[in-house]
Design a binder for these strands. Sequence first.
DNA 1: AAATTTTAATTAAACGTTTGTTTAGTTTTA
DNA 2: TAAAACTAAACAAACGTTTAATTAAAATTT
Lengths: 210, 210
Amino acid sequence: MRSFLKMTKKEIIIESALNLFSTKGFEGTSVREIATEAAVNVAMINYYFGSKENLFKRVVEYRASFLKGIFADLINNSSLSSIEKIDFIIDQTIERKLSNAQFHHILHRELSLEHRPELREAISDILLKNMAPMKTIIKNGIHDGEFKQVDIELTLTTLLGTIHYLLTSDIMCRKILGKKEGFSPFQNKYLKKRLSEHTKQLMRSHLLKK
Amino acid sequence: MRSFLKMTKKEIIIESALNLFSTKGFEGTSVREIATEAAVNVAMINYYFGSKENLFKRVVEYRASFLKGIFADLINNSSLSSIEKIDFIIDQTIERKLSNAQFHHILHRELSLEHRPELREAISDILLKNMAPMKTIIKNGIHDGEFKQVDIELTLTTLLGTIHYLLTSDIMCRKILGKKEGFSPFQNKYLKKRLSEHTKQLMRSHLLKK
DNA sequence: AAATTTTAATTAAACGTTTGTTTAGTTTTA
DNA sequence: TAAAACTAAACAAACGTTTAATTAAAATTT
């Protein structure tokens, strides 16, 4: 059992729901399971959130706030070259995706479904807002002559796609890297370093002029 | 309604299930929905497949056979350089992922869940078998001195991740590419070409020695 | 070729569970 | 003492599955 120290019951429910939704999916998780995990009465969930679907939205909102405003001040940092900014973005993205792997699973799973269109809209907006500053950095790099004239949107897709694809599941990650069953990828320093080095090298040869 | 010409009822059920599972998820789809879509009695599903979960496995098996044995003979084709083989793989992968987008959603969604471990095992094996010949091609390219000494597994991750990430959802695809709501990405020739050119260019600068 | 038997396909109805949600009452807090 | 937090129990609806009966097709025997 996790420790729910210094948390309101509402937060405990959200954290429990996040945990279950990410491993079992929305429809695969019952409110009774959430209640048990959070050690509260079933009725409390509807008392606090009105409905299961509403709880789901609050889970997304709750965690989405973690992602806000990153990279925004990186754009105007004149002491870094564009490729150094890309390096920074790569490490930040790996760090963030690794430590919130579960949450990212929820987002992308929901995106690939055709239920709850407003939620899909909200999720894609979250992800897109995150891409906006990256886009500007590449654009500036091109404008300054540091970068080649690449396809900006698809370059971002490559950056995020590489990291995301590896983290789709622990099982795939293990198999891609040829690791044994004991290997748990998501808390692994070696994995972080290897992924970081590959992605940086990739972006350098893709972006930098010769 | 789709036309189920020249299909056995079993196949009709599988196709209907594939369609619904991919848009609403496994738990989000009821057997009654599947029965309605396939225009058969509810009991027929358990009659033919035993259970809903079994039907799901059969859906995966059914479509997985489409993916078998591709690229296997590409390895020994001596009339193509390694980078030309990569080009071929890129176009094939785009084509295949685009025309089976729904099915790929099912696979990756199931992978990101922690339900049904045997199925996750089976799916990751399917995906991995697909990567094996690609791996060999890159390995050979390196050995022949045509390619740099890159991280082979992560290079594949990049190749597949780029394509996969763009196709996570039509809504994300539209937003990444800055298209209006009418734009339907998955049957779009322009998208194919743009994605193909970007990925090829990316792989060339990543793999080829200068 | 017709009649008969056997097997397979199909159906409507019901099964017991589980689902998300609500109610009505109780305890706790302010 | 009024509002908020919390509980056990019950709610109807939906779930996957099974049953028992019927129709259609295939195989076998006359």
